[in-house]
Amino acid sequence: MSNREITAEMLIKRYGDFAAVNEVSFKVSDGEIFGFLGPNGAGKSTIVSILTTLALPTGGRATVGGYDVVTQADDVRQIAGVALQEIGLDPLMKSLEMLTIQGQLFGMSRRQAQDRAMELLHLVKLEKFTDRAVGKYSGGMRRRLDLALALVHEPYVLFLDEPTTGLDPASRRDIWEEVRRLNRDKGVTIFLTTQYLEEADELADRLAIIDAGKIVAEGTPSSLKASLGGESINLTFLDAAAVETAKAQLNGLANKMQVDRNTLRLYLPGAAAAVPTAVAKLQGAGIDLVSLTLTQPTLDDVFLEVTGQRFSADVKTEDTAEEVA
């Protein structure tokens, strides 16, 4: 019985003594975008190659769309689309040719395959470059074509292995847009690996953090961040005297208060919800506010918490600024 789920139970992949994937279990539901976040060499690509039938697990069991990836590989290939980290394009071919061949290999007539190819080229905004050799495409164009190739046979489940690694921010946004659209409009279940915290945050409904072959945390991006309880309201005033007055006024609102020059930080869970109360109290006391920002813990903080190390790739602070007039 076919569905759109992905399951893994105690999946193991060993190379000699080294366990690239060590007893990994998870379940991705129908229509979900599931992110696998981890640094280079954490085992992400190995899991993708097992799930997409390119490699065999050493132990454990996995299914894609209800089909066993070991014993029903052909069925898995029919319903799964794959865009690997190493883009598999022939530089001498043209995009239209490659998509047409792909369609025909999945059983379409030449005509059907060509129609489908044009449809996909429009979708990934490459319709103007059908006649250019793929070798002359930019990195972003190659990624988009690779994505189109993965979609030719209208897969129910899509595997994207680091789909935006090495792309410029604009191309990255394009891919994100496309992934969301596929998920929203076609109900495609998406399994995505990434080493970008921002990407996982942006796309994934749910994510697992993987480090050294093991899942170390799992949940929605916001629940993972909330679990740290590091949210804060940051209030900046004109001078130190105003800070002191404000501190006295707001006493009892937060778990912890911290003064940093003219800025007062209030640490409390559900910080956003407490903003109106804080602002009302300050107005009541006639204290002028220069700025107000909210800080949420980042996935990087989560990663630090669960693995004891920082992500080296892109450490960013994600401040959600909210100006108060």
Binding site: T52, T53, L54, D74, R77, Q78, V82, L84, E86, I87, G88, L89, D90, P91, Q102, L105, F106, G107, L149
Partner: peptide, 17 residues
């Protein structure tokens, strides 16, 4: 060899060909 090298071979082998 070229197909193996540029990864297109993997792509083909994931089709029902």
């Amino acid at each position: 060899v070229r197909d193996i090298d540029n990864g297109y071979f993997d792509k083909l082998s994931l089709t029902p060909v």
